[in-house]
Nucleic acid binder design. Sequence first.
DNA 1: AGGAAATTGTGAAATAATGCACATGAATGG
DNA 2: CCATTCATGTGCATTATTTCACAATTTCCT
Lengths: 221, 221
Amino acid sequence: MTKDSKIPNSTIERLAFYSRPLEALLKDGPPIISSEKLAGLCGVNAAQVRKDLAYFGEFGVRGVGYEIKALLREIKRILGTDRKWTLCIVGIGNLGISLVENENFRKRGYVFVAAFDSDARKVGTRLPCGLTVEHEGNIGKVVKALEIKIGVITTPARAAQRVAGILSKAGIKAILNFAPIQVRTPERCIIENVDFSVRLENLVYHLERLYKGENTRKKQT
Amino acid sequence: MTKDSKIPNSTIERLAFYSRPLEALLKDGPPIISSEKLAGLCGVNAAQVRKDLAYFGEFGVRGVGYEIKALLREIKRILGTDRKWTLCIVGIGNLGISLVENENFRKRGYVFVAAFDSDARKVGTRLPCGLTVEHEGNIGKVVKALEIKIGVITTPARAAQRVAGILSKAGIKAILNFAPIQVRTPERCIIENVDFSVRLENLVYHLERLYKGENTRKKQT
DNA sequence: AGGAAATTGTGAAATAATGCACATGAATGG
DNA sequence: CCATTCATGTGCATTATTTCACAATTTCCT
């Protein structure tokens, strides 16, 4: 295959997903894994794993399986996570701090190089990771100077849209938004929303149905 | 319709999604909204909105639209978010604290009533919200005593699976897992995984393609 | 060497989700 | 009171995604 025959978004999501157990196996596991095993670890269908990978090339050997190290390298190359990415964050509350200090991000090459807030009392604060909080007004200047492409929004909902606009105007190309609101940007800009409450509401829906009898979901997400 | 003709999971996700702008409009907006308008606010198709709602009843009036207040009430009833839910959390790091203190959760009726950690140095700490951190060993006792149904995991990846087992055994029926690993539970238990890095990796994938020319996604997520 | 076992890659079938397009009912205005 | 406008609810076509099932390829064993 290998042709760009319209790759489903869900395939991309799963690729990132596959890489988690692979990373773990890299340390103390066999050097080879079958689609069956990997699928089991990720709770998906084996054919799905093979098809997802087949969109991008032939990484396995028939009758054998996939070499874990090589497969992981390929996945990272596909996703674009085989290099460092610099991020900035706007909104230094509890959530903001927990993200900036997050070990998983750093481990995967996502490094925060700037932190902003609109609250004058927070500006100038030195965060544990070493960053100093700057005022929102500097976003444009800093983003351009450091050539930051990805912005993370952890402001309250009411500020999120305004901040998205500022980021976009500053040249940011992708936004990871944690505010519980659908933000829009004028310029060509990729937006990914993460809303914890939505996930929780999903859980609650299925939970209620669980008590009332039949299961409403096929498998664990 | 109204019959339980296999409701797509995505419909449930969108219902929670629809409720965000509706909540905002409740304060200072018109009393009525059309599927067209709501769809616009959420970045989806209008027929989609109508169909999603139609799974659960006829909430609109032809030629008129949907009464916002009533619609929101219905959505909340459907999702099961028209009542309070008590949660417990395991893993009191930066992320854990930011969730416990999160205003959005409280506003929507999700209340943390217990916090656990395995680190003896954290046990006994009083969190800003008033909760005192208890030792992981007490999970079973406390969960049963307070009849907690939902657990949130914010431990490091290596501890997540173990904690999921403990929670499940304690009688927890739903788990919101923030650790970057796919957790399993022996008992019938609903699991929802939230992995920030996966979202970021998605963003990066599309970002790389953005530079290379054609757009790989149809619309903003 | 040759057959059995394992496991990939993939066409085709099955399943699921989305969007169109229109009949239907409500409001409005002359 | 009828015509016009608006917007819902929904059957149906379309599009997208998942799963099956099997030919192709490799390894292993005798």
